[in-house]
Computed example of a mutant assay.
Amino acid sequence: MNPTSERRLLAILLRLSNALSLTAMFAIVKIATAHGVTLFENVFYRQLFALPLVAGLVVAGPGIRSVKTRRPWAHVWRTGLGMVGMGLNFTTYTLLPIAEATVILFTVPIFATILSALVLKEPVGRHRCGAVILGFIGVLIVVQPGGSTLSGKGVAVGLMASIAVSAINITLRQIGRTESATTTVFWFTIMSALPMALLMPFFGKAHDAPTYGLLIALGLLGGLSQLTSTASLRLAPVSVVLPIDYSSLIWSALAGWLLFATLPSPHLWLGAPLIIASGLYIVYREHKLHLEQTASAVAND
């Protein structure tokens, strides 16, 4: 096996670990909420207990000096978006069955394509437009407007979460031109955990030991998901690792069955393949366009 193949295999395994840790994290959010943990507390403990993992990665890797930045306001903006996105994600999983929430959030590539056209003025050809339409057809099949048992509020919050995550992805793409992924993760964790810690005396509550155990696991899994996601993208192209994210549907369906005694609806299995196909095709087209632009730049050099 050549080094490139080994890096891609490791990237895929890391991305699979990311999908599993995210599913477990969202399941814990759902359980913790049932134990009386508020949204504010879930977000705070997610960041607080992720901080040792993130800081440890920086210290053991490039060193603390590597996180020095000349773009503090870009990180402030990214942190604000990240907190909104995390809050909406967590709320989606508390309002919807875990498998349905996961599928709704698969619409991120669809909204990222729309925002890229509107905000970055990137050209979107007929292929990606067709993929966006296909994805929305899949969403309509899953949510069954007018005849669904799903919470309308949950679906609305889930779509808002997808839009927020899409905006985060675009922001990360812009910040990534000058900042490393490790630097971005570090400042996001610091800038969110510290201000929230100051507000905990006003918004925090006392919980029993098992609930605090859930919150510690929530933070550790959140930190693990960030690190494995970042590492996978360093080892292989997005087009290689991103399809692994869709394995979350399998893990969330199992978690829903084992932990919450819920099974995905038949409509989910009809609509999810369309949403997944839409996302994969968008990634494929972006990868193909990137290769064409690179080849053109090399030819003109």
Rank of each mutant, 00 (worst) to 15 (best):
Gln226Cys: 01
Tyr281Ile: 14
Ile64Ala: 08
His287Lys: 02
Phe106Arg: 06
Leu96Glu: 09
Arg46Ser: 02
Trp77Ser: 11
His267Arg: 13
Ala24Val: 08
Thr23Gln: 05
Ala24Arg: 00
Ser247Ile: 08
Glu179Cys: 14
Ser148Trp: 09
Val157Tyr: 10
Val108Ser: 00
Gly125Ile: 06
Leu199Asp: 06
Leu39Gly: 04
Ile64Tyr: 04
Phe106Ser: 04
Ile104Gln: 03
Val298Arg: 14
Glu286Gln: 07
Thr211Cys: 13
Leu263Gly: 00
Thr102Arg: 14
Gly85Lys: 09
Thr294Gly: 00
Arg15Asn: 12
Ala297Asn: 01
Ile175Leu: 15
His290Leu: 00
Val76Asn: 01
Tyr93Ser: 07
Ala50Tyr: 07
Thr38His: 05
Val76Phe: 13
Leu105Glu: 01
Leu199Cys: 12
Ile282His: 03
Val283Trp: 01
Leu9Glu: 13
Ala24Lys: 00
Gln144Trp: 02
Gly82Arg: 10
Leu214Lys: 04
Lys288Arg: 10
Val240Glu: 13
Asn300Leu: 14
Thr113Glu: 02
Leu242Arg: 09
Leu215Pro: 03
Leu289Asn: 02
Ser229Glu: 07
Ala101Arg: 08
Gly80Ser: 07
Ile163Met: 09
Val240Pro: 09
Ile64Asp: 00
Val240Thr: 15
Val119Asn: 12
Leu134Gly: 11
Ala255Thr: 07
Gly80Met: 11
Met25Tyr: 07
Pro145Cys: 14
Tyr284Arg: 12
Val238Phe: 12
Gly176Gln: 12
Gly152Leu: 15
Gly147Trp: 08
Gly87Gln: 09
Gly87Asn: 07
Val132Gly: 02
Leu289Ser: 01
Ala297Val: 00
Ile250Arg: 05
Val119Pro: 11
Leu150Cys: 09
Gly36Lys: 03
Tyr212Asp: 11
Leu249Trp: 06
Tyr284Asp: 07
Ala112Met: 14
Ala32Asn: 03
